[in-house]
Nucleic acid binder design. Structure first.
Length: 472
RNA sequence: GCCCCCAUCGUCUAGUGGCCUAGGACACCACCCUUUCAAGGUGGCGGCACGGGUUCGAAUCCCGUUGGGGGUGCCA
């Protein structure tokens, strides 16, 4: 077995994969790769996960999307019951036998009552010396020793906890099943995990886990607690309030590379001036010691800016390939059989320089594949109210019927000449034609689009709408 | 309540006692370019939470205050 570092990432399935989780996974992944260690992906087991295995699959998919996979495929999935259930119980038994843990027959209500009566919070150690053995309804509690526990954290330095502030916590429930805390520690031991990199919310529970490692006679792993990701209210990202599903960003046309790069800049920054850097740079330079201490806000605007840059970095072929899922999805606005790859390719480069996300691409090129463009009535009225607009439209229509050759530059010259005669600037003059042909007042460069659409269709649209003027 | 963490432009960050008159990026604003919209270019706005120390010198070190967050289950 390899003796290198072993990192683990253990999300709990909640129906989707969280951006905060993705960031933590990325931190683990970068480290595992740089230090040539192992990356253990294990999905925490919950009732939800057991009832809905597709949730677990979704997490594995989302991780794969951002380039992460477990080095130990066997752990890709719920593990809790299936792999180490025996080890959990064995560890509990050892702790009881050695005196590090003891049984207690108080119910949680009784614990609360005693706490209220004494004015102290939490469990008071009532059964510490009562010598109780295991029995149904009795919980196994850890005997927290006197003194203090120092957690050596790679991100935060030494964090000191006074053990007197930690109550004797439960290891085994009254029904004999292990608590998460115990299971987690035992799983880490069984998997020989050497580095635990997780979100800061786990820091307050770390001394408990560390005491368990100590009591079980093993050296604790290297701890590292990375800052939380928060919403605009500075609260921990929550699935209720916040849009945090990684899958959703994938579906909206964010590129995995952009997502990964952006996520890595939350709590860390690459050396040098550039923050848009390839993964190879990240992998070569990421260090936990350089991770920030304060929570970071997940800013979709900045993610979008990254995404736009990544889209523009794509070769034209890669861009076209990346667009495919969005051009052939079910909610595309045109009849699927009308889609013409050649037409799309002809306009791809001008679309590429404008896109922030891939999902907005169909809306930019839809006029090419629709029988008739979806006319923006408001834009139409506004455009045609401009003096000279009607004239430009009808004169351009006539000119385009016979113009040769049918090329963007020629179309441009012609229309601009007509516009000039009516005292209209370039942008103003093209507006009526743009709206008539594409349905909108904004869009890709007009003459390139006209060239791709072809004379017949352009003239047809200009004529159709031109007749509309008369009736309006 | 108790425990823990955190504190640089609106946001993400650089900064590890003098290179700081605090740098960059996103956002925003203006201008340039321009075929609408983008992209690109130039410029602008904007910050070390507060109070005490330590030091010749503090964004940086110490203490306190304030503010924010997290944890504290027979949840995971």
């Amino acid at each position: 077995m390899s003796s290198g570092p072993r990192f683990r990432f253990a999300p709990s399935p909640t129906g989707f994969f969280h951006v905060g989780g993705a960031r933590t996974a990325l931190f683990n992944w970068a480290l595992a790769k740089r230090l040539r260690g192992r990356f253990v992906l294990r999905i925490e087991d919950t009732d939800e996960a057991r009832n809905r295995p597709e949730w677990t699959d979704g997490i594995i998919d989302a991780l794969a999307w951002i380039g992460i996979r477990g080095d130990d495929p066997v752990f890709e999935g719920p593990y809790f019951q299936s792999h180490y259930a025996d080890a959990h119980l064995l560890a509990a038994e050892r702790l009881f036998t050695s005196g590090a843990a003891y049984y207690c027959d108080l119910t949680s209500e009784e614990v609360q009552e005693r706490a209220k009566a004494s004015g102290l919070s939490g469990y008071d150690g009532y059964s510490r010396d009562r010598g109780l053995g295991p029995a149904p309804g009795r919980v196994l509690r850890f005997r927290v020793p006197d003194g203090e526990t120092v957690v050596h954290d790679l991100v935060r330095g030494d964090v000191v906890f006074d053990n007197s502030t930690i109550e004797d916590f439960v290891l085994l429930r009254g029904n004999g099943t292990p608590m998460f805390l115990l299971a987690n520690v035992v799983d880490d031991m069984e998997m020989r995990i050497s580095h635990v990199v997780r979100a800061e919310e786990h820091l307050p529970n770390t001394p408990k886990q560390q005491m368990l490692w100590d009591a079980l006679g093993q050296r604790p792993p290297v701890w590292a607690h990375v800052p939380l990701l928060v919403n605009e209210q500075r609260k921990k990202l929550s699935k209720r309030r916040d849009k945090v599903a990684v899958e959703q960003y994938r579906d909206e046309g964010y590129l995995a590379d952009a997502m990964v790069n952006y996520l890595m800049t939350l709590g860390w920054s690459p050396p040098g001036d550039e923050e848009i850097v390839p993964w190879s740079t990240i992998e070569a330079t990421f260090r936990l010691e350089d991770v920030n201490h304060s929570p970071a806000f997940f800013d979709i605007k900045k993610l979008s800016a990254f995404n736009g840059e990544y889209i523009r970095m794509l070769s034209i072929e890669a861009f076209i390939a990346a667009c495919q899922p969005f051009l052939h999805s079910e909610d595309v606005p045109w009849p699927p059989e009308r889609f013409d790859p050649a037409k799309f390719a002809a306009l791809a480069s001008v679309v590429q320089s404008r896109a922030t996300t891939l999902s907005e691409v169909p809306g930019v090129v839809d006029f090419m594949f629709l029988d008739d463009p979806i006319l923006d009535e408001l834009a139409w009225e506004k455009t045609m109210a401009t003096p000279g607009a009607k004239e430009v439209l009808s004169e351009t229509t006539d000119a385009y019927r016979n113009i040769e050759p049918w090329e963007a530059s020629v179309l441009k010259e012609t229309l601009e000449a007509i516009g000039e005669r009516h005292g209209m600037k370039k942008g103003k003059a093209q507006a009526p034609v743009r709206v008539a042909v594409t349905g909108r007042a904004v869009g890709p460069p007009l003459f390139e689009a006209l060239e791709v659409l072809g004379r017949d269709e352009v003239v047809r649209r200009l004529t159709t709408v031109g007749m509309g003027i008369g009736t309006a």
